[in-house]
């Protein structure tokens, strides 16, 4: 930046948007926050070429990727808030199962709306308990939510003796997974709705700013009077609620509630969020990045299957990707 432009800013106070953007780009690692989008484009391009003959680019396969990404993306949006607040929620996978079972239980007798609200209500409750124990008893959230994971998945297993509960409600299934607007699956619409709401909440609402502040420096946030205990609780409620909605989407698509839905989503969700530019240790988050991360994970999953990798090898690949993503996130945290 030249001397003259500094002086001009001092006189007007506000630089032009372009100048401000260039300045931030120079000083705040502007390029790095776009890494996830470059990665998305790169992986898309690579798979398009090497998996061309396997039909990677066919519209049905792309739609498939979007459908598979939906629950991960929704959970990633919630997890971004938990991480932004300096906490982590390991119970999300079990909440997916619980939510699907509650929905299945209620939809049959009370209709789709009661089913939806009951499923979300149960998830909010789990998030509240997670948050209250973390904040009031001062146990790290990874331990609280790990315990909660055990409790909820146990409840889910007992619910119907490991059997799935069928959902026979066209409205529910249509709205939450099986249906859509014309050719566009309702799942894709839900990704956009949840991602959009999350983005607004994080960057355009007071709450989001307080979540980031709390995660960045809890003492400093306290010192300006932010109720950081309440903020942390609300962030864990957000992550559980999002997981509950992911459970609704899975229940809708498969037309069942079952104890093992979402069981092995946890690592994928965390990877999606961290790849998307959210700091694992709080203070920085990106909702759009998290959604993009979820699409990347679904794309990788799909690509690895098309390449003919066994389930075991997919797990190994996913583990490697997660460690790489976290390593990048750590480096970023140290630099800033």
């Amino acid at each position: 930046m030249t001397r003259r432009s500094i002086q001009r800013q001092a006189s007007t106070g506000l630089p032009s948007p372009v100048e401000a953007w260039i300045d931030r780009y120079r000083h705040d690692g502007g390029l790095r926050r776009f890494v996830v989008y470059f990665a998305f484009a790169l992986i898309l391009a690579t798979f398009s070429i090497i998996l061309h003959d396997d039909g990677f680019l066919s519209s049905s396969n792309l739609l498939n990727i979007g459908r598979q990404a939906a629950p991960i993306a929704v959970m990633a949006v919630g997890m971004a808030f938990a991480l932004a607040a300096g906490e982590i929620d390991l119970s999300v996978g079990s909440v997916v199962a619980l939510s699907s079972l509650v929905a299945a239980e209620m939809v049959g007798n009370h209709g789709f709306l009661v089913g939806l609200l009951a499923a979300l209500g149960a998830s909010v409750l789990v998030g509240l308990v997670n948050g209250l124990i973390t904040v009031k008893v001062r146990i790290p959230s990874f331990l609280v939510t790990l315990g909660m994971l055990g409790i909820i998945s146990g409840i889910a297993r007992n619910w119907n003796d490991l059997q799935s509960l069928p959902i026979r409600n066209d409205r529910f299934s249509g709205l939450f997974g099986a249906g859509g607007l014309g050719p566009v699956s309702s799942l894709l619409i839900w990704i956009i709705v949840v991602g959009g709401l999350g983005h607004i909440a994080l960057h355009h609402l007071r709450w989001g700013r307080h979540v980031l502040s709390t995660g960045a420096d809890r003492d400093a946030a306290n010192a300006v009077g932010i109720n950081t205990a309440r903020v942390k609780i609300s962030a864990l409620v957000a992550s559980a609620t999002a997981a509950g909605f992911a459970g609704v989407l899975l229940a809708g698509r498969l037309s069942i509630g079952r104890h093992d839905l979402g069981e092995d989503y946890l690592l994928t969700v965390i990877a999606a969020v961290v790849i998307g530019g959210t700091n694992l240790f709080g203070g920085r988050a990106s909702v759009i990045g998290a959604v993009t991360g979820a699409l990347i994970m679904a794309m990788l999953n799909n690509g690895l299957i098309l390449m003919g990798l066994e389930v075991a090898d997919q797990r190994i690949a996913r583990g490697v990707i997660i460690i790489l993503a976290v390593a990048l996130s750590m480096r970023e945290a140290k630099e800033s």
Partner: peptide
């Protein structure tokens, strides 16, 4: 305060 209470990422 001595520790300033500014939030770095903001």
């Amino acid at each position: 305060h001595q520790a300033l209470s500014v939030i770095d990422p903001l």
